[in-house]
Design a protein around this nucleic acid. Structure first.
Lengths: 404, 404
DNA sequence: AGGGATTTTTTTGGCCATCGAACATACGTC
DNA sequence: GACGTATGTTCGATGGCCAAAAAAATCCCT
């Protein structure tokens, strides 16, 4: 199978789809809860779920028992684990993260590879990725049928067409990820901007972020932003994410990977901090390679030891971040702003300057309406987010009714 | 009546509401067109419309005849004109615009008043506005029942609660417009940010702006931004609009009305241009009052005559505007960006610098996805936009079924 | 002029998704 | 062990919606 099933149109299939999607988004739910969620009567829910149960699509979920309540206990329902699996892939500058999750959402295996891909031509790039996925699948998913693959990548992604239009981490442009991988793997492929994937995954863990507007700022290899409106991804002009990291926040500022100058990313991303720190220390400027995790830990260590110049650098980064969040608040007035990613590891050294800059860059009345939080979210969530989207696409197929 | 009717929940009323809303948004439509729009069969549409016609809510619309087509001609339907009227009010720094529109959307009267309101205390402010509306209603709407009032204002508006939380043009804060006017007028009141109202009105005239994301930048007394997603208003944290004009785009830039420095508005708004032009001409800085329309025309005249300093000033404004649109594109990736408002009158002197700045401030691949247009939209649209929202709220009442 | 051709609108009969109400079930509690 | 409470199921009935057929209103061609 190469493509995902189409959206159902028949009324009954639509109801099934809404029910399955509610389960996917809200986790295991009892029938009464589904009824409230979907605005349907217990009778209708009972009919829908009984067929889904006999078809083996749903199962009773014993793990999430709520004891101590009066009355007949709730029976929570969730997806069966034997409906196949999906693989989520995050492609970074010189690293690839893989995750295999079964239909019930349980992670079966993960893998992390150091593998520089940035200079490959599109075809070779696709060959490499496909081979990596295939190897992972045969090794980790022996007993499972792989149903789909999700890819999260930095940059501007057209997730409708499945193309990485432009990415700061690949030399090639307009890489047809979906088509290319689908041909090589014989599976449907979802492509998502990595910050969007992160936003989705975080919202799954924090239900309060699923109502209203949540802007999730991810700082790491680059700076990305994912915007959720009532838990659903806001998609830009071509179904892509946002390139908030390349908002030019300082005129004539430092060089950025995108070719511009003074982008937010050029102050906050790992490579930018590393580059500037090296320069300050009179050490030769590194070539454009990404710093290793060890190098960044060492940098943090220097800051902890009170390296004045480095602390100034981080303070400058905090200022830029404050201005950036100011722009977000003034432009979008989100209910929640989440700052996450590896870039938050230096938060203690950044916070003061951030607060001060944000105070100057936003109107107090508006700032007060926005709930700000800094999360130490692990990179694992990137693959989780795109896998979640994959599963939702596959659920469309499950909502189809078999002719009997 | 003080409040708007609640959203219907019964299935039939919901269908009526969807039908009426489609008519309100897409203008007069034939039954077949309604069927396609709503995904309902001709049979269902026929049943729904026949009752709406006998109830006198809809009428046949002869004005929009399409000749030359084969087959039986379409009968377009639209709202009857005798279901009452609404008044739309735009409250500016020292001007109030009024418009009276009947239920069929036809403008029956307009009025424009010079009336400084900015220094009044909330209660007096509400008294003034209420008196103005009342006078206009008794004079212009003699034969019509006024059903509701819509208010468009600059600043951060909580349109759910009907409060102007913060506005650069009023000294007072948290003005309870909805409640205050509803008490004084005995009518339900809609409050909307003025740029949002403008965005709605423009989208009504340009159907292509109703699909995808449209960011409408309005430059005039201040700088506002309204964001539409598939024709529907994006609402921030507290159902407000956006205060994009107070994004701080230059550190330590010129003073802004909001108290900050270097806001977009402080470079582009009429008062800012006027102030800076006066300063340049060695003339005494004007007090904080808004320039009159005449003063701005004179300014434009000086630019046409080749006043070097003034042209530089406008060029600087163009640069800021380019950077601002760059931020919009990088953050939201809208399908359309519309620049409108009185501030566009100097466009010829601004354009070159704008283009250059925008090119530097955005990634070419993303910029290419955004359709940019500059519209010479008149201020009249402000009242039209908020009236449109009023009518939609009132349509909720029409979608209710009478017990028979 | 008149008889298709074409498209819109109405009418009719029937289906099926959903619901209300009664019933069955499975606990805690006293 | 009876009662209270909440969840889940069964069954008959409702009514929103549709497909198909018919009617209506124009254009078009001979």
């Amino acid at each position: 199978m190469l493509t995902f099933p189409a959206h159902p149109t028949a009324p009954k299939e639509l109801a099934r789809r809404r029910l399955l999607d509610a389960l996917r988004r809200q986790g295991p739910l009892a029938r009464v809860e589904l009824g409230q969620e979907l605005g349907l009567s217990p009778a209708t829910i009972s009919e829908l779920t009984s067929s889904l149960l006999t078809e083996g699509i749903l199962v009773l979920d014993d793990t999430s028992e709520v004891a101590g309540a009066r009355g007949r206990p709730k029976q929570r329902l969730y997806f069966a684990a034997d409906l196949g699996a999906v693989i989520g892939v995050w492609v970074g500058y010189n690293r690839v993260e893989l995750r295999l999750v079964d239909s019930s959402g349980r992670t079966r295996a993960t893998r992390s590879l150091e593998r520089p891909l940035q200079d490959l031509a599109p075809d070779l790039f696709l060959d490499e990725i496909a081979a990596t996925i295939m190897a992972f699948a045969t090794e980790a998913g022996r007993d499972l049928t792989i149903r789909a693959v999700g890819v999260a990548a930095q940059g501007y992604v057209d997730s409708k067409e499945g193309i990485i239009t432009w990415s700061p981490v690949f030399a090639a442009r307009d890489i047809p990820i979906s088509r290319g991988l689908a041909e090589r793997l014989g599976l449907p492929v979802v492509v998502e901007n990595d910050a969007s994937a992160m936003a989705l995954a975080i919202a799954r863990r924090h239900p309060e972020l699923r109502t209203g507007r949540t802007a999730t700022l991810m700082i790491g290899d680059g700076v990305g932003m994912g915007l959720l409106i009532d838990g659903e991804l806001y998609r830009g002009a071509r179904s892509g994410g946002s390139e908030f990291g390349h908002v030019r926040i300082r005129r004539g500022g430092p060089q950025c990977r995108c070719g511009g100058r003074g982008c937010i990313e050029a102050f906050l991303a790992d490579y930018a901090l590393y580059r500037d720190a090296q320069l300050m220390g009179q050490q030769p400027a590194p070539d454009s390679l990404m710093p290793t995790e060890d190098a960044m830990t060492a940098l943090l260590e220097r800051a902890r030891d009170g390296d004045r110049a480095l602390l100034d650098l981080l303070q400058g980064a905090g200022e830029v971040l404050g201005d950036a969040v100011g722009i977000l608040i003034q432009t979008l007035e989100p209910d929640h702003v989440v700052i996450c990613g590896p870039g938050t590891r230096a938060w203690t050294f950044v916070e003061a300057a951030f607060d001060e800059a944000l105070a100057r860059a936003s109107i107090p009345e508006l700032r007060a309406l926005t709930n700000l939080r800094v999360l130490d979210a692990s990179q694992d969530l990137l693959t989780e987010g795109v896998i979640f989207q994959c599963l939702r696409e596959l659920d469309l197929g499950l909502s189809r009714l078999e002719a009997v």
